[in-house]
Design a protein around this nucleic acid. Sequence first.
DNA 1: CGCGGCTTTGATGTTCATCAAGTAAAGTGG
DNA 2: CCACTTTACTTGATGAACATCAAAGCCGCG
Lengths: 239, 239
Amino acid sequence: MEASTKIDISDCELVQDCSSCNYKSLLFETLDDTYLKKISGCKNQYRFKKGQTICVEGDKIENLIYLHKGLVKLHRTSSSGRSQIISISKPFDYIGLLSVFSNHNYKYSLTAIEPSSVCFINLECIKDSIINNGKFALEIVEKMSKVSDDVLGAKFSLSNKHLRGRIAYILLYFSDKIYNSLEFNLPVSRAEIAELIDMRTENVIRIMSEFRKDKIIKINGHIIEIIDINRLKSINING
Amino acid sequence: MEASTKIDISDCELVQDCSSCNYKSLLFETLDDTYLKKISGCKNQYRFKKGQTICVEGDKIENLIYLHKGLVKLHRTSSSGRSQIISISKPFDYIGLLSVFSNHNYKYSLTAIEPSSVCFINLECIKDSIINNGKFALEIVEKMSKVSDDVLGAKFSLSNKHLRGRIAYILLYFSDKIYNSLEFNLPVSRAEIAELIDMRTENVIRIMSEFRKDKIIKINGHIIEIIDINRLKSINING
DNA sequence: CGCGGCTTTGATGTTCATCAAGTAAAGTGG
DNA sequence: CCACTTTACTTGATGAACATCAAAGCCGCG
């Protein structure tokens, strides 16, 4: 019930100029120097602390948002007031690519769940590049296709699983896709996990405790260690 | 358990050439004559009867599929063997735009649920147009954004509803979005509705019967008439 | 120290899937 | 065109999965 923390630019530190950016390659590898320079001129990069809001559902879309570093959640509030997490994005995941080109206002909010470095590229500038640089356009199309594919695939996959399967899925997701390690520090609360995989906080806790008792994982606050990954995988598939 | 009916081109009648197409305007309005002629040279149009398969999950993607006339369902089979409908597309909905640019093979099948006229445009040809015609590229980007947005929005909306709300939603969907009429002929079976809104056939029937008893709708086989649209809307929102 | 947020566990109730069984409708072969 | 078979639809009874409610412990923070 807290007032949604509007983005406060003064809170965020501007970090670097575009030309020397080490991360440009992935999204902009097809842009030649002329266009890269142009993009460079219409972008800003900011740092966000954990918990800081990057943009809010309903805000006017003026930038393409690109994650350099950190971890963010894409989320929304349902009409009944329930908060839901659409996806978690890591660097190069092209957050916000989802509905940017078909809406004037954001349909989802974006909040940092780890300290993050975010690049705002003026949308008109991106559109200009799409129009004038065919290869870049094709690349954007391919990325968009992948993003929506992933989100939808995850949704469908989850809707077929029982609660145990969902917990297995999300633990494997963090281990595999985010941290590349069997031991990791959960960046989100139990309640947020619930919002992400469509269940209730109490059941997230309950089932994680079950997994702990069954010696599938170790839990120490937010630190999770996967002990028996094979059983977890099996639960993910068959649950 | 039937063998999936592979597309049989001989069954489908080739209808018309591209240049005289009345429907080109929506997707290809930004293409000048030169490109339109080029697209024209690498497309084919076919008719499909109700129930005929247009493409199957796993098939190699070689064309962009564009619906001129009719109604088709986009569907897949989950790993547990359960059939699910992703969405129903009407003309100009750009079916198949969903994962076409990020996969080599279809992730979903496409089946006509009403007699349909479908246009297959060679994908390489489309890609070529994206690269060489900026405005067309931007248009594709915008359409893709909209398609994925709609599907995702529907999924999230449905996952928040109880069964009564889902039935209300789908009845209003057919009435509003597909047929523009309070009375319409359901193009799908009860079982298919269940696959579309993630519930069981028995419950689809049960709740539709409830609505009939409550004088919200009239049912005559596949013919549905909405009598009390306000209550249906209220159930859609609050259910 | 005390307050609020996050976490945990138990008890209870609701929603929905499943099972079963029967009817209507639609296709199929003689 | 009728008997037969299959598929779609319908209704009721039961149980499982999960949400909800309640209450207590934990931990960091002012």
